[in-house]
């Protein structure tokens, strides 16, 4: 009797694990197929230039304030932390080099990616989900317009192109934040600080930063479009799509960051 009950409980547990695993794998499969379909539509006409330009403004230009402020404060805080931590080993002088490498290789791309996930992924998912629940996506199809080409491709392409540029801006402003704090509060010489920064950075640091930006831009906009298109009905459907898109984008950005860091810098 007891053995039977234990066996049932084990079977139920295994069934739950199996269902969850299959569900997760099916979800990953759907996202991969969606990404492949997006890439295919990116290289086949028609192209919607007006929608692409609008997306470029929305994803890139309008994200500049949030990216700038985030990078500025992070650069300043980073300089302070490195100075404070470095003083324990009497290596305070490495602040410019570590701020530069920290911002360009890691914090710049990751923070910009996460800010884009918060600002752009959420808005794209909510917009497309609302279009879905109000039948605007169906209307697009009846008007002979492919929703992937009209909605997804312009947004993902805008993410792919504009986020690396935002990362470059974020890197520069982050370094500027560190420079500002170091020269105003920590007594560093402004010209020497900049000289040390420029001399220390290598082309591979900058390439990795921009490559991460492109990958994160692709992920952030793709997740917004995917979850928007998969939205359920009503206000709850839109809310769930928005939440899921931001969570998925943030996790995938952090995972991609680890993979790309391994690819660029693994010794």
């Amino acid at each position: 009797m007891t053995t039977g009950l234990t066996s049932n409980a084990v079977t139920r547990l295994l069934a739950t694990i199996g269902r969850t695993s299959l569900g997760a794998l099916a979800g990953i499969g759907r996202i991969v197929l969606f990404a492949l379909s997006t890439l295919r539509h990116m290289v086949t006409p028609p192209f919607y230039l007006r929608e692409f330009t609008q997306s470029l403004i929305n994803v890139g230009f309008l994200s500049l304030p949030v990216v700038g402020l985030t990078a500025l404060f992070t650069g300043g805080a980073l300089a302070l932390q490195i100075y404070s931590g470095g003083s324990r080993f009497s290596v305070e002088a490495v602040v410019p080099q570590i701020v530069a490498i920290g911002m360009v290789r890691e914090l710049g791309p990751v923070l910009v990616g996460l800010m884009i996930a918060a600002r752009v992924t959420a808005s794209v998912a909510a917009e497309i989900a609302t279009m879905k629940v109000t039948e605007q996506i169906d209307a697009l199809v009846t008007l002979s317009t492919h929703p992937m080409k009209y909605l997804t491709v312009p947004r993902v392409l805008a993410g792919l192109i504009s986020v690396p540029l935002l990362v470059a801006v974020g890197d520069i402003i982050g370094i500027f934040g560190g420079w500002l704090l170091a020269t105003q509060s920590l007594g560093f010489n402004p010209a020497t600080y900049l000289q040390n920064t420029v001399n220390f950075l290598e082309p591979s640091d900058i390439i990795s930063s921009l490559a991460k930006g492109a990958a994160f831009g692709f992920i952030a906009t793709l997740m917004g479009c995917y979850y928007g298109m998969q939205s359920g009905r009503g206000a709850q459907g839109v809310g769930n799509a928005t939440k899921s898109s931001v969570v998925a984008a943030a996790i995938l950005i952090l995972a991609a960051n680890f993979i790309l860091t391994q690819a660029f810098f693994a010794i």
Binding site: M131, T134, E135, Q136, D138, A139
Partner: peptide, 8 residues
Amino acid sequence: FQGAALFD
């Protein structure tokens, strides 16, 4: 469409 489905 039922709700007109105009593009906002």
